[in-house]
Design a protein around this nucleic acid. Structure first.
Lengths: 189, 189
DNA sequence: TACAGTAGAGAACGAGCGTTCTCCACGGCA
DNA sequence: TGCCGTGGAGAACGCTCGTTCTCTACTGTA
């Protein structure tokens, strides 16, 4: 029935949001399916009727997060006026995100660290996200006519800032990375 | 007795080496104490007489790894002739390390991702290591008379390259980071 | 030879996990 | 009203984990 299907879609959404929040905050292995069930306000039966199991849930959470982060970052990028400012906007997104409580860095790096060795599916999603981010930066850099190694550098600055913003609990690394990226852009103009 | 104490020291060493290898390769939660016991060739009783528990073991493994990596990196640094080459040598160490099988990136970032939310002690060791690496790079950069933001940039390049070298299973990020660092040094000469 | 103390092997324990199953209350329909 | 099927609550299951305990074999000593 259409009504039931629609209800399922909403429930799925609620579960995925709860899972994303909990997995990101505590790491996946530290969150039990029962805790997730409680947080999402759903029965265990429903949970397992909607998802194949925990690993599948983790996989889907990561895929959705990739889309969400891309969309959110794009808002920052499109708001900028010049192509150079667009590139730097990704660091503004990071600085703003790290201001929120319990920012824990890059969910994909974190998941790779925790589950990469035991889950090929998680590894695949993580690689996909990294390829995507790198590609997006490369496209923006290429649009300014600069060589690809500039994009590689900015990508690595971005990645290093993500982890260290989390570890130091400060947006300082994000600002430092932005400054370095600007320098690279200025000197390759 | 002295003989027994010495034997204990050797056994401790063996356990710590096995733990370091297994925790790094598989992540800590994926390695059981029994698997570790088998790998180290020691009884469970002895294991618990030498260490307070798993968390304490993880903590000590990380502390020892920090020392080991520092020492190993220093070999690369001291081999270089100019101050600039010394800074860049850390990326050579990374490129060489990533060539070894089952390189898994930065053990501290990985541990923070997995255990940071649940273990203050692990978090403290990770922060200590990051502060140390950042400080070491800052000292080398300062010795060349360049401003501190150059050190911040190189540190973030280093960190980004560590994670992505692992994720992409390639030493390419290490080389890209080296190139970017050299550019920064050249343009701030 | 008899004995005390140590250490190894691994059984045992309690807790927690992911997953499944049982039970029951409630809905639409004849 | 009586029936059937869906879905929720949560008990149950099987497994694995970290940790402790028991038993046994062995060593050095009198």
């Amino acid at each position: 029935m259409t009504a039931t299907t629609s209800g399922d879609t909403e429930t799925r959404e609620r579960v995925l949001q709860a899972a994303d929040r909990l997995f990101y905050a505590k790491s996946a292995h530290a969150v039990g399916m029962d805790e997730l069930r409680a947080e999402a306000g759903v029965s265990l039966k429903k949970l397992y009727s909607l998802f194949d199991g925990k690993e599948a849930l983790v996989e889907e959470v990561l895929r959705r997060r990739e889309e969400a982060i891309t969309a959110e970052t794009m808002k920052y990028v499109l708001r900028a006026s010049t192509p150079e400012e667009q590139i730097l906007a990704v660091f503004d997104w990071m600085a703003d995100s790290s201001g929120t409580t319990d920012f824990r860095g890059c969910a994909f790096i974190n998941s790779y660290a925790e589950l990469g060795p035991s889950s090929d599916r998680v590894t695949a999603v993580v690689r996909h996200q990294k390829t995507g981010v790198r590609g997006a930066i490369a496209a923006m850099v290429a649009a300014t006519g600069r060589p690809e190694w500039v994009a590689d550098s900015i990508f690595l600055l971005f990645e290093g800032a993500m982890t260290n913003t989390a570890i130091t609990v400060s947006s300082e690394p994000a600002r430092q990375a932005r400054k370095a990226a600007r320098f690279l852009l200025d000197k390759t103009a």
